[in-house]
Every structure is written in structure tokens, then in C-alpha cells.
Nucleic acid binder design. Structure first.
Lengths: 188, 188
DNA sequence: TGCCGCATGTAACGCGTTACATGATTTG
DNA sequence: CAAATCATGTAACGCGTTACATGCGGCA
């Protein structure tokens, strides 16, 4: 297995579409990829861009501006595209899921029932907020996709986000009900 | 926020329930916690147990066996319980989701449609297999929970897994349909 | 005036995996 | 006979975050 270095391929993948700065990479990730791959930080992005240049997978153009900050725009090379393609064709392996809220709930036997219900409510509320945002994104993407489908896969990711959040909402409802029934029993 | 060291608290949380070895910790995690927190490796567990002892959060008993391997059983101390409680009460923050299969699909515009459908099919099949396992777990837990509810929160985690897998299955169906329609259009 | 967005980066640290090393017993 | 399970650990490495450091322009 060894080094996959997913960060590297995410950046290359974004650069395939258009040349951009490290700052842009971050924004694009947050907007489109965060549904299926948690954000990466600047502390990863900037060193990786430098490394890509070093390895000949991307080239850098420095744009000096008087008013706005200097932008360093990275463009993917043929070698970079080839490396990305190689990665893309390989079978996927890595899958990580870590949810601290749910984890704490797992240890719920050591907390008052009331606290667990509160925690579930928080998870539910948070998911509802995220859902609203994602619904908007999906709506606007749907109208765009019918015209030209370059955003199709972006739409697919947002749809995954929707399904995931819906699942979380439904589960938290069930869980809250279950715990509330238990609370009734304990009181009686 | 600095050091949360979730691994530490997962181990302490398990030790709260009963004394166990590093090997046991791993098994318990795989069985019950992996739905909401990806597995941690022995390379994390053993050094952490040593650290817990050093910090006075757990004590170690060495069990020498003639036939079976030596077991080092760790028992949580009062100090350990206190540390765990402090962590448990705090609000949750960390949330990580990384799915390489979905990520590669995001870059699907750079792959033949057929390959993307195949990848989706793989995700779907894999989820179906996992679903079967989880369904069994939920069934057996349901029968146990009605008698005594120490496994209630374990059941809740498994139920979360069910919801998540169901969402993935539904999404992949939709996505496959969407891509297959596109394929028809391209051919005509 | 203070915060947000744009824009770049580094250094220290902590988190986590993988590979290595060992060896008995049980199950297919 | 081979593989899995039980059982322990270490060392090297890579992944990733956080805090720090800098600075302008626009908006409330």
C-alpha cells in the first residue's frame, strides 16, 4: 500500500480543471470536496504545491499585484496529468470516519440520560443547518447541470451529502425517541 | 483546542466497563466503535496503555500463562475515571470523513462514464455486504436490550451504521441511474 | 475600529500507520 | 499443512494540525 498521499492527488485533480493558487485550492475543496473528504489545511497545501513544482508535476507563475497580495498560480504539467490519471485508475482503499459526538454518545451509559438526549438534539440541529445549505447547493447545481454537465460529479457529491445528512437526521430522531421512552419508564 | 488525544479516551472509556488487554481493546473497538470512529492500530494502543500506567490513569497486572501468551491486563484507576468523565462532559468537535472511492468519483469527468458506473457499483456492493453484517448485529442486540439495557448505546451505534449504509445504497442507486441515462443520451 | 477576506508561508508538534519481530494454539 | 487467532511490542516514517508571522483592502 505505502504512500498514497491523497492530498497530492486532490490538488492535481483540481489543477487538471484549471490553474490556481493555494488559496483557491482550499476554497474549492471546502465547496465541493468536503462532502466526501475532510478539508486539508494550508499547512498541507502550500508545502505540497512546492513539492509538485519540484517534482515537475506543476509549474508556478508569480503574479505581482500592487494593491492585492502576490498570487502564485500553479499550472499542471503533462507529467502531472499522467500521475493523476495513474492514481485515478487505481482502486480506492482508504476510508476514514471519526465522529466525536457519536463517540461520546457511545459511552452514554456513563452519563445522565438527559445529557445524552441533549447531545443527540445537538447533532440533529447541526445536521439540519448543514442540510439547508446543501439543499440550496443541490438546487442551483441541478439547474446548471441540465445545460452543460461539467458540474455533474460535483452535484453527485452534494447529493451524497444530502443522503448522509438525511440519514443522520432520521437516526437521531429514532435515537431520541428511544431514550425518551426509557426516561418515561425510569420515572414511572 | 490543542491535545484531545481521542485514542486515550476511547481506551479509558472501554476500561471503565471492564479491565482488559491491548488486544481486547482492539477487538472491542472493531466490534462496537468502528461505526462511528475508525479503528486504531496496535501501534497506537500499546504505547498508549503504557502511557496511561505512567500517568496513573490505569494499573497493569501481568498474567503469566504456560500455554497461552502472557496477558497484560489494565485496570482503570479513580484518576483515570475522573479524566474520562472530564473528557466525556466536554462538547464534541472533531469530525472527519474521508472516502477515497467517492473522492475518485468526484474527479469522474476525467474518466470514461463506464468506469464511473463500475466504481459506483463497487461502492454499492460493498455497502450491501456490510449492511448484511450490521443487520445481524442489530437483530441480536435488539433481543438483548429488552432484557437489560447495558448494550443500548452499542445498539444505537449499530443503528447509525445501518442508516449510513442505507443512505449510501440509496445514493448509489440514484447516481447509477443518473449516469446510465447520460450514457443512453451519448449513444443516441 | 475591528473583523473578514485575500494571500503567503514555516516550525513544532502530535497523530497514526506500516513494517518488523516473535511464537504458541486452534481450526479448516 | 496453512491460516487465523491470541498476544506483545518497537522504530521509522508519513500525515496533518495549530500556532505563529505578515500585510493590504473593504465593510459594518
Amino acid at each position: 500500500m505505502a504512500k498514497d498521499n491523497t492530498t497530492k492527488y486532490i490538488i492535481l485533480g483540481l489543477l487538471c480543471h484549471e490553474a490556481m493558487t493555494g488559496y483557491d485550492v482550499k476554497k474549492q475543496m471546502e465547496q465541493m470536496i468536503s462532502y466526501v473528504w475532510s478539508d486539508i489545511s494550508f499547512g498541507q497545501i502550500y508545502p505540497m504545491l512546492a513539492k509538485l513544482e519540484e517534482e515537475g508535476l506543476a509549474t508556478k507563475q508569480v503574479e505581482l499585484n500592487e494593491d492585492s497580495p502576490t498570487r502564485k498560480i500553479y499550472t499542471i504539467t503533462d507529467k502531472g496529468r499522467a500521475a493523476f490519471q495513474t492514481w485515478l485508475k487505481k482502486a480506492a482503499e482508504k476510508e476514514v470516519f471519526k465522529h466525536e459526538g457519536l463517540l461520546k454518545l457511545f459511552f452514554g451509559a456513563q452519563m445522565p440520560l438527559k445529557e445524552n438526549i441533549k447531545r443527540l438534539q445537538q447533532i440533529k440541529d447541526q445536521s439540519a443547518v448543514q442540510m439547508a445549505t446543501i439543499d440550496e447547493a443541490v438546487q442551483s447545481l441541478l439547474s446548471v447541470v441540465t445545460k452543460h454537465d461539467d458540474h455533474l460529479y460535483y452535484l453527485l457529491m452534494a447529493m451524497f451529502g444530502q443522503h448522509f445528512l438525511r440519514a443522520t437526521l432520521e437516526w437521531s430522531d429514532e435515537a431520541i425517541e428511544l431514550l425518551e421512552n426509557l426516561q418515561q419508564k425510569n420515572l414511572s
